[in-house]
Nucleic acid binder design. Structure first.
Lengths: 120, 120
DNA sequence: AAAACAGTTGAGTGATTGTTCAACTGTATT
DNA sequence: AATACAGTTGAACAATCACTCAACTGTTTT
């Protein structure tokens, strides 16, 4: 029986387990997508923006006022949220209004909140 | 009626909205906790570790083998996951076995996966 | 007691990232 | 057409962070 090749610095202790788990792992791109999704939520500013938009549709100035931040900083983060498909926007004259992309975002936000409340 | 003080570079456009949303915002520590939680999930290595542990209880060497990483790198991330209460561990002789802290972690993982599948 | 092994930990480093600053769109007003 | 305003964007800087390396526990074996 041939030795297996390991690309880590460990002799494998539970070989069967490792093989079995390896089969059940997701594809790299899938992991990357899920990671990217959580990464977007893992920032204080973006989370507060999403929470604010969960209450009401708001323009960039409104959000900046709620968070006490500059328009520029907020706009950068809104860009990130847009690219991640977590928010939508519509222009009305000079003003751009933002809303949550869908109800799904709302659910995850509340799930996160529930999680930390349960911990306490 | 007195002018309001703004700590951003914007004249507020929708004043009533801003006040109303501001009241509904969470306390800073609450946001910080939720952010920290998502931040832990927002890393490729940690997510893969959690996914692996979702399949089976594993020791550090096993995890390192599954991910093709060094024990040290994995151990560092396990430390982060432990501090965030996402995993538990038990020692058995020289070996330390890790498991998910609770079913709640499992749920959030799967919620994240469903989210990205719906997007496609 | 000494060697071997599973795992942890601290310092250092390179990469990522959030905010600022300044310049820039695009739309509306005068 | 010129000014003003809402918003965007790129470069630069500071802070954060994941991995490496080396030294270290703690447990078992000989």
């Amino acid at each position: 029986m041939p030795k297996h090749e390991y690309s880590c610095d460990c002799p494998i202790i539970h070989h069967e387990k490792v093989e079995s788990v390896q089969k059940k792992m997701l594809q790299d791109p899938d992991f990357a997508q899920v990671t990217a999704f959580f990464k977007v939520l893992g920032d204080n500013t973006r989370l507060r923006i999403l929470w604010a938009l969960d209450q009401e549709e708001l323009c960039v100035c409104d959000i900046a006022s709620v968070l006490s931040m500059t328009k520029s900083a907020v706009s950068h983060q809104l860009g990130t949220l847009r690219r991640a498909n977590l928010v939508k926007c519509r222009r009305e004259g000079k003003t751009v209004f933002y809303t949550l992309a869908d109800h799904h975002v709302r659910q995850i936000l509340e799930a996160g909140l529930e999680h930390i409340k349960e911990e306490a």
